[in-house]
Structure formats: C-alpha cells, structure tokens
C-alpha cells in the first residue's frame, strides 16, 4: 500500500474543495434553510407530529441524508471523471499504485466532503428546530457509512461516465427519486399499504429509517435491517469496483 500516494490524492482533492469552500458550503446551507421554510413551516404547520416528533425535527435526518448522498456521489464521480476528461488520468495509471490506492484516495476525499456538508446541515437545522439525538454514536456511524458507500457508487459512476451528461444522469434519474420516495419527508407508515409494500424495495428507505432511529429512537424498519442494507450496498459497490480493477474496464485501452 502506497500511503503517500493516497495522501497525495486525498489532499489534492480536498484542496479543490477548500479553494471553493464558500460555494461548497453556502449552497447546502441555503437549500437546507429553504427546505425548512417550505416543508417545516408551510407543511409542518398542518402536520403536528409524526411518530411523536415535531414535523420540523422529523425531516432533519432525511434532509441530511438527501444532501449527503447526492454530495458523495457527485464529488466522487466528478473527482475521478475529471482527470479522465482532461487527460491527467495518465498519471494515475502510470504511478506505482494499484487501483486500491486510487479508490481510497478519491472515495475518502469525497466522503469527507460529504460528511462536512452533512454536519453543517445538521448544525443549520438546529437553528430551526429543537433537536435531540438519542444515539449519537450510531448517528455518526450511519452518516459515515452512508458517505462512504455513496462515494463508492459515485466513483463507479465516474469511471463509467463518458460525458458530463452521463455523470449527472444517474444521480438525477435514480438517486434523487429514490431519496424523495425513501421517506425523507414523511414516514413510510403514512402511505397506503400498496405503496408501503413498494417502498420496501427502495434501499434508501432502510438508510433513512436507520438514520432517523439514531435521532429519535423510532423507525419504519428494524435497525438491524438498516445496517444490513447499508452493509449489502457497500459490499455491492466494492464488488463492482473490484471487478473494474480486475478487468481495467473503462480505465485502460
């Protein structure tokens, strides 16, 4: 393992983030605030409580997840796609590193950025609602795992993409709908039975439910399932990455 190479990639990616720090941080803060105004204030005034929690507080975990997932995917995807796009990828291929170092470096940096943004959103939301976190360690663990696994997914998308359109397609067409339909802003139990059934095929439901459990101690699905879902998803991504590594798919001519 070439730790210096991992650190080089990680620092290089993070410096890109710091260079545009204000932009990187302002937009999630603003959009979170908007969500609170729209969902929390407008809708929340009509819905008193969900599962014993005020609606404003109830949407916080989903809101954090939504941002963290999209951020992880887009920054890992962009991070690895950009060198391919402008041609600096040759350096990664010619360096004395294996694919593992590349993955750890890029995914680590993307997950870190998403984590920073996630925490920032959490802090922002505390200005709007009273929030108590029942299981803080579990909360952090869920957050970190989500950042990592979705950064892995983003990495795969970045390797796969041959254009910026493709790079944005999956997050837009697949992830955002799954997150919105994954109980970010409502409890699955509020849905009619048929849609409840459908929802259980949505992997994001398990993540958000588990994450919400760490805040309020209640959940749509048992926490064990949530952990299993996120572990399975991570394993799947790692498997795909291992395969890419073995075959050199979309990496080498």
């Amino acid at each position: 393992m070439n730790w210096r190479a991992i650190r080089a990639i990680y620092q290089f990616e993070m410096s890109r983030f710091y260079r545009t720090l204000t932009q990187s941080l302002i937009s999630p803060v603003i959009s979170t605030s908007l969500y609170f105004v729209v969902f929390g204030a407008a809708i929340g005034s009509r819905i008193q409580e969900v599962e014993g929690v005020s609606y404003g507080a109830f949407i916080v975990p989903g809101l954090v997840m939504l941002s963290v997932m999209t951020q992880s995917i887009s920054s890992a995807g962009f991070g690895i796609y950009f060198p391919k796009f402008i041609g600096t990828f040759y350096e990664l291929l010619s360096a004395p590193i294996s694919f593992l170092e590349i993955v750890v470096g890029y995914v680590g940096a993307a997950a870190t950025k998403a984590l920073i943004i996630g925490v920032l959103i959490l802090i922002t939301s505390m200005f709007f609602v009273d929030l108590s976190i029942v299981h803080p360690i579990a909360m952090l663990a869920f957050l970190v795992l989500t950042c990592l696994s979705f950064a892995l997914l983003g990495f795969i998308i970045g390797i796969w993409a041959r254009s910026f359109e493709q790079l944005q397609m999956i997050p837009l067409l697949v992830v955002t709908p799954l997150v919105f339909l994954g109980g970010s802003f409502y409890s699955i139990s509020m849905l009619p039975p048929f849609w409840q059934g459908i929802s259980f095929f949505n992997p994001v439901v398990y993540l958000i439910s588990g994450f919400r459990w760490s805040f309020f101690g209640t959940s749509d699905v048992p926490v064990g399932f949530s952990l299993l879902a996120i572990a399975g998803f991570t394993a799947l991504c790692l498997g795909v990455i291992w395969w890419i590594f073995r075959t050199g798919w979309r990496l080498r001519d």
Partner: peptide, 25 residues
C-alpha cells in the same frame, strides 16, 4: 506525455507536489 494534459485551475506548485506524492516519494 505528447498532449498537454494539466488541470487548468491548479497551481503549478500543487500539481508538481501531487506528482511526487503519487509516486510515493
């Protein structure tokens, strides 16, 4: 390489330092 392939917004010092690290030095 034959083609000029560099990140346009990166600073010279940063890219050169990156390369050294990437090669494990």
């Amino acid at each position: 390489p034959q083609e000029i392939t560099l990140e346009p917004f990166e600073r010279v010092w940063n890219t050169v330092r990156f390369s050294r690290g990437l090669f494990g030095k």
